[in-house]
Each structure stands twice: as C-alpha cells, then as structure tokens.
Design a binder for these strands. Structure first.
Lengths: 338, 338
DNA sequence: GTTACCATTGGAACAAGTTCCACTACATTG
DNA sequence: CAATGTAGTGGAACTTGTTCCAATGGTAAC
C-alpha cells in the first residue's frame, strides 16, 4: 500500500541505511545523495510509519489518562490542561472514561502497559495498595492528579485546608448553624474519591475549633449531582432550626442547594449563605461564592511531570500542592439574625 | 525487559508457531502442549505486545477524534457518546483538541494516517475540498459529527429546520420583534463551523414567511461565548425599539442574554423571551426554553458508523439527520404588548 | 508391508523501521 | 609508497508477533 523505506531505497538506488540516515538527519550523508533521497521521498509521498518506529523505539508518544465522569466541569478543565501540554510536546492523549467500578478496575489493570502508552495520568482515582505495586512493576511513569498515594507523584490541593478555609469564612461571617453537603461514602468508596471527605474533615475541624456543635442533621451526603444535593438541602432547610449557611463540596452540589432555596422561596444570601467548590464556569454567572482550585493548571502540571519522567527524569514521588483561593461573590453574607 | 513470545517458546520447549497458536486459540495444538505453554505464560507473566500485533495486523484499535473547543458542554457530551461506544468495542479514543486554525489544519493533515488510528471522527469541523480529497486518499474511515461534507458520512441535525422551529415558536407566541444572536463569520470561517449560520438561515426564513422585517440591529454576531453574547444582547436591548424575543444559536449564548437582561433590570419572559439551543445541563436549572439536540447519541452513532466501516462495511457517504425537539421552559411567553 | 493421510509441530519469512558492522574510496601522514 | 584514517555507503540483524510451508510421527487403509 503505502511506500516503505525499502521502496525509497530501491527507487533512489541507495541502501536502507542511507535512507534512514537522511530521515534522521545524520550528517554522514553526502549532499548529493541526501537530495536524491529527498526527491524520491517527495515523489513517492513516503511517510515513515509511526507504528514501526514505535515498535523499535519502544515509545508510543502517547499518554493515557484515566478520568472518572469526564463530563464533570472540573474533570474537563483538567483534561484541557493535560491535552494542551501534551499536544505542545507532540504527544497524543488517549482518554479512558470511568463511570463504574468494573471499568475503573479494568482500566487500572489494562491501561498501564508499555506497549499502549509511555505514561499514565490518573484523575481523582487513587490506586489501592496492590494496584500501586502493580503500577511500580510496569516501570511506567504514573502521575496522579487531584489525589495522592504513597510512592507515587501527585498534583493536588490541600482539601482539608480548603475545607477549613470555606468553613472559616462562614464562621467569621457570624454563622453558627452551618451545614455541609458532600459525596456519600458508599459512592466515593467505589472510586476511592477523597476530596469530598477531606473537605468535610476541614469543615469539622473549624466547627470544633469554633466551639460549634457538629449536628448530624446538618451534614448531608449523596451521589455527586445537582439533583441529590437539592434533595439533601431541602431536608436541611425544612428543619425546625435550619442552618444559616451551607458549604458544598462542589459547585455542582452548590447549584442543587440554590435550587432548593428557590423551591422553598428562600433568598440567597438573606436566608442562606452558600459556598461552593471549584469555581466552575457557571459559578460567576450565578454569583456563587466558592473555593477556586487551579483545574487547568493541575492537568498541565501533571502532564509536565509525566513528560519529564518519560524523558528519563525520576523525580521523588511527592505530592505537589497547588494553592486554592476563596472567590467571594454574592451567595455569602452574615446571617440574618446577626 | 518483558517476556517475548520467543522466551515463552524456549522455556516451554516448543516452537514459535505453537505459542502463537495457543495464543490465538487455534485447535491445532495438543491439549498437553497447550497446557505446558499456558503454564509458562503464567509463570513468566507474559503479555503479548499490543505494538507488535498492531504492526502485523495494520490495525491500531484506536479511533482519533478531532474536536474544537472540547470544554464546550455540547462537545463534551458528544465525546462521551463516542468514548462509551468505542470502549464497548475495545477501541481506544485519542482526542485532539482544536482551538486555533493552525492546530485545525495540522490535525487534518497529520491525524488521518493508518499508522495512527483505524478511523477518524471529526466534530463540527467540515473539511475543505482539498482536504476531503486527501482524506479519501488515506482510505481511512472518516465520519463527521455535527457537520457534513459531500462524499463523507455525517451525523448531524437539520440546523436550518431547527432554526425555523425555534423562530416559529416565537412568532406563534405573537412576537414581532425577534432578534438573533449567533457566531461571527470571521470566527466560524476559521473552523468552517456551519451550525450557527444555518440556524440563522432558518431564522430568516421564518421571519420572511411571517412577513416580518429582518432588521440588522436585531442580528448580533460574535465569538461563541457568554460574555460576547451578553454584550451583543445589551446593545440590542438598549435600542429605542428593542426586540421582545431573542433566539440564541446556543445555550451558552442564551446565558449571556440572560445576564444582559439581569444587568438591565429586565425580567424574563415578561420583557424578553429567550430560546437557546442544545439543552445543556444547566438549561433546566435556568428554566431556559431551548432546542434539544441528541448530543450523546450523535457521538455514539458516529462511533458506531466508524466501527462498522473499520469492520469492512462501506456505507454510502450520506448524512444522517437526528431529530431535534423543542423543550419549553419558563424563558418564553407571549410579548407583553400582546 | 506399503502407501496415504492427518494431526501436530518447528521455524523461516515478513511487517517497517533502526542500529551497527563491514566495506569502499579517497585523503592524509610518516 | 605504504600505512592509517575517515567520510560515505550498503545491508544484515534486530524489535515482536503472525503466517505459512515443510517436516515429523503415527494411524489407517489396501
């Protein structure tokens, strides 16, 4: 079908090695020979097979990314950072979308293989102990984004501190009855998601430090989604003594809380202050106070780490923490009673 | 490094062909030999190289997708449909994100190569005449999603009819001063985007059929984004005789219009009716009336077509049109004067 | 006792590049 | 003038798995 290096060699009346040298810009070719080979290459529309090169070099120039629920705005933004960085270095991005435990396990087992990719990025999916061992056995570079695991590189934020930041903001506004809405254990356990749990830890730290009671009724956990958060917030707001502020583990969930207030005819922030997390695109439009984390940058940084490891560097397996930032908009205010 | 088929053959004391036959489930191996080979394979943790297999078979089990601005909700949803379908058939998805004319051209030139992928899906990016010829020359299966081109398969919607549907809805509500906000030519031309333009065509058809004047001041074109739409809508709404309804070529742009009404203290739909396009996730929350198109399905269908072509089928190069649906929510009503 | 046939097996050739050794000229050095 | 050096070149060997032809051993039929 397509012309091969042998076709070129034959047509140009030279040896295989000479064509290869021309292709690889070796100086050990006379100008006349080089030109003749280049002419034939142009004439035959010869393009070296990426495949054969890959087989020889043992490098695929491909990075695999395993991402859960890649329609989530936060995941997308990270992927964008990854793609931009990889494309800038001539690397391809293969995406594996995980939406079930089976698929997660299958990806962790099958994707990290040297004949598939040169490195693996995993978003929000920390591997278990045995999986970490298996990853090490492959000798492939692995970088975690938005999560961490011992012995592996990671790029993430300090979710506990971020949770404290959000909660402290509400406490300092004068709120005493503060709620939290995050992901349900049963669901995060499936994928080992930790962000929501850690933000919740930060939430509790601040409440306790402020001498505020942690009321179970003010803590709602459900599947990560607008609808579930809406239901949870509704319950909370219908309590005899409802919270005056709620911290949501994500903007998506904050959106559900906003819906619930609307359903009940409540006003934000007069009746309820809301803080979200991520600062997704729509947050600005909605005037949502939120904790912004560098999503694009986390992906870009993770991709840079992978590329440097592919290039042979072996950085220490530490977790890099990117800074978060509180973005104050209209959804937070002192409580009405204050 | 990793064990090869030769290592297995040597350790099992059999020939290369025998190991290959075991791997390929050939019946021409005695049970005893098969078991011995399988034992050695397990012992050496041998895994066949995907790479070498690819070189032999000439198949990469990979489909490339070229997508513009893949953070857009509509593109993401299509990608999700593509990924789900490909993963279900053991195919990998390589994503190329296009955000500039250079990158678009580079992708169209370099991605469709047999040694990179078995097929190419292109979202919203119709190739030009010379590029179509080049695509045909590669013999690679190509399917367009959300666009069409002669000689190529496509999966899209009838954007003109959809534009008519949206506009007719406004006309039938009694609106006489109807605006349109869509993508600027200068920007769509870069990528050959056609959706906005065609929806605008439908818009004009209906206005003319209804005997309504097409006023240039009621037609705004800008870069596809919330902010740009907001600016355009603001201008329109500040006219001495502003439109009583606006049709936006996308929900993202409809969002900008919503923002503009809010900026000006106007109420939707009392002062202004708005119809968007796509029915993205947030549209429901915002109560936006919109034209829903099957995004996930378009990706899934495109992927199915590619897979069937990879399997050897050569369907006629026709464009499949998926149905659209008007989703009526709270952002549309008869004009105040009616 | 042959001949015929089949199940089973081994391994060369191949896919499309890269690497590297060997060889040819010609030039420089002693 | 011989010895050494080197730029330029050719092509075998190699990467890993598949394909296919040839060969083996044994059984069955005549």
């Amino acid at each position: 079908m397509a012309a091969t290096i042998r076709d070129v060699a034959r047509a140009a009346g030279v040896g295989l090695g000479t064509v290869s040298r021309v292709l690889n810009l070796s100086p050990l070719v006379s100008a006349a020979t080089r030109q003749r080979v280049l002419d034939v290459i142009a004439e035959l529309h010869y393009v070296p097979s990426r495949l054969a090169h890959t087989l020889i070099a043992g490098k695929t120039r491909t990075v695999a990314t395993i991402a859960p629920f890649f329609t989530r705005p936060s995941v997308i933004e990270r992927l964008r950072g990854i793609e931009a960085t990889l494309a800038g270095h001539g690397y391809n991005l293969v995406v594996f979308n995980v939406e079930s435990a089976e698929r997660r396990n299958a990806c962790l087992r099958d994707v990290p293989r040297a004949d598939r990719c040169d490195g693996v990025l995993m978003i929000s999916l920390p591997p278990r102990g045995d999986e970490i061992a298996a990853l090490h056995a492959t000798k492939l570079p692995v970088v975690l984004v938005d999560t961490s695991a011992s012995g592996l590189l990671g790029v993430c934020i300090d979710d506990v501190a971020a949770g404290e930041l959000a909660t402290r903001t509400l406490v300092e506004l004068g709120h005493r009855r503060i709620g939290f809405i995050g992901d349900a254990q049963a669901y995060t356990a499936t994928f080992n998601f930790t962000s929501s749990w850690e933000r919740h830890q930060g939430f509790r730290h601040v409440l306790q430090a402020a001498g505020l009671a942690v009321r179970p009724a003010y803590e709602g956990f459900g599947f990560h989604g607008r609808y579930e958060a809406r239901v949870l917030a509704r319950e909370m707001l219908l309590l005899a003594e409802p919270p005056t502020a709620i911290f949501a583990a994500s903007d998506t969930q904050a959106l559900g809380i906003l819906e619930a207030t609307r359903d009940l005819g409540l006003t934000v922030p007069a009746h309820l202050s809301i803080i979200g997390f991520d600062d997704i695109d729509i947050a600005e439009y909605l005037g949502l106070t939120t904790v912004r984390q560098p999503l694009f940058e986390s992906g870009a940084h993770g991709a840079e780490l992978i590329l440097s490891m592919i290039a042979g560097h072996r950085p220490a397996p530490v977790t890099a923490y990117l800074p978060v930032e509180l973005v104050v908009r209209g959804s937070t205010a002192p409580p009405a009673s204050a």
